[in-house]
Nucleic acid binder design. Structure first.
Length: 263
DNA sequence: ATGGTTGCTTAGCAA
């Protein structure tokens, strides 16, 4: 079972690339972030034509997350259902083939110390509580998305320059570690231990991509039953090349898991 | 060097 995640930076601006990537990669599940549209403007028909069901949590202009899957997703949950109404569409969850799939778009945080930065740290705490209340680490779950935090120096092209900057501050890294403390494994790093220079996001500016000046901030985190079955994981850097790319590359992981796997 | 690029929406914001 191949599961992927991609911050597409507008599903409408990326529609052609999205369909091309799905045709080539054929993941069972693709989690999307930054749809930047309401559900009425989501390309339902084109994706269905390509063989994919979809569920999305849309928002005008900003944010927006979705789950595409070959099998129809069930038990769809939009948001964290924790009583906080912040108006930001950053989470959607659904069951696909007996696996709980969560597509998440963490707040960017803007400047350190800004209200957006504080909101980011709070959002991480809410997500951990959401997992604690609604899920168990012994059950199959894959939490995918753009987490807007680089976990370790190896995930940053110039850790010294990035030290203390948004996406690589100690409070953000601690918030990410606390999230993983639920019982989640970083599938890419499990399969590529110690491999440097492997990033998932590159700024559009300053020739960051051709210079490989990026960060690894997009992840597939899996609970033990899924992490134990992970047999491959990678970042599709090719998909960041060419005209009109997203600033993120798709990331995927493959699991020894089928529809009739029962835990 | 406070630059540079993209998307949405239409001048300014968020990333």
């Amino acid at each position: 079972m191949k599961i992927a995640t991609w911050n597409c930076n507008s599903v409408r601006a990326r529609q052609t690339r999205l369909l091309e990537w799905l045709a080539k990669a054929r993941p069972e599940v693709l989690c999307l972030q930054e749809l930047k549209c309401v559900e009425e403007d989501f390309p339902w028909a084109e994706l269905r034509q390509a063989g994919y069901h979809a569920a999305c949590n849309g928002q005008r202009t900003y944010n927006g997350v979705g789950i595409l899957s070959l099998e129809e997703p069930t038990e769809v949950l939009r948001g964290m259902d924790d009583g906080v109404d912040d108006g930001q569409a950053r989470l959607i969850a659904a069951n696909v083939a007996g696996v709980r799939i969560v597509s998440a778009y963490a707040p960017n945080g803007q400047a350190v110390g800004s209200p957006a930065y504080d909101y980011k740290l709070e959002w991480y705490g809410r997500l951990r509580r959401h997992l604690d209340l609604r899920h168990r680490p012994e059950r199959p779950l894959v939490l995918c998305g753009d987490f807007n935090v680089a976990a370790e120096p190896i995930d940053v092209y110039d850790p010294a320059q990035w030290d203390g900057q948004t996406m690589f501050t100690e409070p953000e890294r601690a918030a990410l570690r606390h999230l993983l403390g639920f019982g989640l494994t970083d599938t890419f790093r499990k399969l590529h231990p110690g491999e440097p220079g492997r990033f998932s996001w590159w700024d559009y500016r300053m020739l960051a991509f051709p210079k490989n000046r990026g960060l690894r901030i997009d992840y597939l985190f899996a609970t033990a039953p899924m992490a134990d079955r992970c047999q491959g994981a990678d970042i599709d850097r090719e998909a960041r090349k060419g005209a009109k790319p997203s600033d993120h590359a798709p990331v995927w992981a493959d699991f020894r898991w089928s529809t009739d796997s029962v835990l």
